[in-house]
Design a protein around this nucleic acid. Structure first.
Length: 572
RNA sequence: UGUCCGAUGGUGUAACUGGCAACACAAAUGAUUCUGGAUCAUUAGAGUCUAGGUUCGACCCCUAGUCGGACAACCA
């Protein structure tokens, strides 16, 4: 083997993000024996979206990068909002994204007994008390960010009485809402979260894992940090809104006297032309603005999956957007770039006509059918070639013909020549129109037999190349053309009295019938989610939808191809 | 009239931790092309929120402002 000429080529190494910098510093300092252990802690009360994907990639990515571990933990402390349906979908989505929690699947509900004991510890230390105030009274006495709150009259109950009351809360002696357990901290704290926050509430509700075992449930704030502690998480990565909660988590950890994870907050993902809150996504589903959580227009992971996005493209997106603390709104075009980049090198090409118009080759034999050879993927020769039937009557895209075209129009027009991709050069001789509507019904052309693709004479230059299908061989398919869900770049940026729903894009879904070359039927793996993605040449990337049934193909448009012609047209 | 966080091209993230701002997307131009895709070249666009200060030197440190965000659920 030859010596390497240059000692160490300067590789274009990505610089560390601020979280990696903190972690590497901790490793250098030997914190937690230089161990790295993260977790992804969703609440099973909705489907995951692209913002969660960012967090998943971050947490699992950190685990992998530093030879550590990453847990999946469901923060299931509110039985009335949570459901196994969500648990299942979340696991499916994380797996689909390509991450593995191995044997570390946990639930905050696994820790309910431990959490109860922690609460008892606080009570013994007189750091927590049972409070009989109603929710309204509590909110009235909490004060405002600029005005301190009032102490509860129940604040000075003895430890004994509190322990007894808390036990009776657990035993089910009291109705919902009649009592809560609160921390005794500081009603005058400038941090609202430190004003004697609620630790436990009474909820006679069935829990998807613990059933009817409990009728008191810990609040998220009382469960989250301790759960991380129990799992010996080294770095608790979460979003910015929990920054203000950190002093409270630290207080719990300190007062209970348990292992302290380090919490680091980052800015959540926002994307143009969509909304990202679970509440709003749920609303869109419930109100029927979309067909469900996995509607291909939704920014949910299952929506993106159904739309035809690949896990690779989403992981690459997450890597590209980076992570920082400032508020951000990422341009969807970056997501689109990521999926185009991936599908460009992987998706097989096929010809499909979205809006067909008939082309008759007058000088082509009536009954002849030729097999044309078409390349499956010009980016990947190993994908080979396929046969395409060519006959006298073809279908091309209506937009590929103009009777009176501008100079820059490189497509078919009276007297002009174009190449039919993988076939012949044809010339437009005449046009047949509907007498009443003026709509073009047939374009009559002649072909040049010397110009068949691959023939020595075929290299004549023509300005345009069109995709086509043979009319009698083409296969019909339902094609769903998706556009952005909202017409406003930031649907959350609203004027008085507006709602994000005012900006729903009424044209976000168009359903058409397209004509696809028959090779589509030869695809052995026409199974949604497997090898089901194609580039329809000159149109875009498409993915087979699960609504497909034996005689009825259904495709989703993942993303259109970039179209610089459409762009120049638009400028005019 | 509080606490916490943030501020770098249109968008997002960098800048060897103090040495005269880079990368990706988006945009534009040209080449090339049997996809007006892809590819390849090239260009434009910020002088780093403002004002002071420290320093030989500041995006980076200090001070004071400005603007933006988060926090007042028995939600997470």
């Amino acid at each position: 083997m030859e010596d390497l000429k240059t000692p160490e080529e300067e590789k274009p190494v990505r610089s560390l993000n601020f979280i990696e910098e903190i972690i590497e510093e901790d490793i250098r300092n030997g914190l937690n024996e230089s161990r790295v252990h993260t977790r992804f802690p969703p609440e099973p009360n909705g489907y995951l979206h692209i913002g969660h994907a960012k967090s998943i990639c971050l947490n699992f990515g950190l685990g992998k990068r530093y030879n550590g571990k990453t847990n999946l933990r469901f923060d299931d402390t509110n039985p009335v909002k949570e459901d196994v349906e969500y648990v299942d979908s979340i696991m499916e989505d994380v797996k689909w994204l390509g991450f593995d929690w191995e044997d570390r699947l946990y639930y905050a509900s696994d820790y309910f007994e431990q959490l109860y004991q922690y609460a008892v510890t606080l009570i013994r230390k007189e750091k927590a008390y049972v409070c009989d105030m109603s929710a309204e009274e509590m909110s009235e006495t909490r004060g405002t960010p600029t005005r301190s709150g009032k102490e509860s009259p129940y604040r000075s109950r003895s430890a004994e009485e509190n322990i007894d009351l808390f036990a009776r809360m657990r035993a089910g002696e009291f109705p919902d809402g009649s009592k809560v357990l609160r921390a005794r901290i500081d009603m005058a704290s400038p941090n609202m979260h430190m004003r004697d926050p609620v630790l436990y509430r009474i909820l006679h509700a069935y829990h998807h894992r613990t059933g009817n075992q409990w009728c008191i449930y810990p609040m998220y704030d009382f469960a989250h940090g301790q759960s991380d502690s129990i799992e010996r998480i080294t770095h608790s990565i979460c979003t910015l809104e929990f920054e203000v909660h950190r002093p409270l988590y630290d207080w719990f950890i300190r007062e209970i006297g348990i292992y302290a994870p380090r919490q680091i907050e980052f800015a959540r993902l926002n994307m143009t032309y969509t909304v990202m809150s679970k509440r709003k996504l749920l609303e869109l589903v419930r109100e029927g603005n979309v067909s469900g959580w996995d509607d291909p227009r939704m920014p949910t992971i299952c929506g993106l999956r159904r739309r035809g996005f690949t896990p690779e493209s989403i992981r690459n997106f997450a890597e590209t957007i980076g992570v920082a603390k400032r508020d951000n709104i990422i341009d969807v075009s970056l997501l689109e770039f990521c999926i185009r980049e991936d599908l460009n090198r992987r998706a097989s090409r096929l010809m499909a006509v979205m809006n067909p118009v008939k082309v008759v080759i007058d000088n082509y034999p009536d009954d002849l059918v030729e097999e044309m050879e078409a390349v499956n993927n010009p980016e990947d020769e190993s994908k080979g070639k396929r046969a395409m039937p060519f006959s006298k009557t073809l279908l091309i895209e209506r937009e590929d013909f103009m009777e009176d075209p501008p100079n820059k129009f490189f497509r078919l027009a009276p007297g002009r020549e174009v190449r039919l991709k993988a076939a012949y050069i044809i010339k437009c001789e005449s046009v047949v129109k509907d007498l009443k509507t003026g709509e073009i019904e047939e374009i009559h052309c002649t072909y040049d037999p010397q110009t068949k693709s691959g023939m020595p004479e075929s290299n004549r230059k023509v300005k345009g190349t069109l995709h086509w299908v043979s009319e009698k061989h083409a296969v019909k398919a339902e094609v769903r053309l998706y556009d952005r869900l909202f017409t406003k770049e930031n649907p959350d940026d609203l004027a008085e009295g507006e709602t994000y729903k005012d900006y729903l894009n009424s044209d976000s879904l168009k359903v058409i019938t397209a004509m696809i070359e028959p090779a589509i039927l030869n695809e052995r793996e026409l199974i949604p989610g497997v090898s089901d993605k194609f580039q329809f040449e000159r149109i875009g990337y498409f993915s087979l939808d699960k609504d497909t049934s034996p005689g009825n193909l259904v495709f989703n448009r993942v993303v259109p191809l970039k179209d610089s012609w459409a762009k120049t047209e638009k400028v005019k």
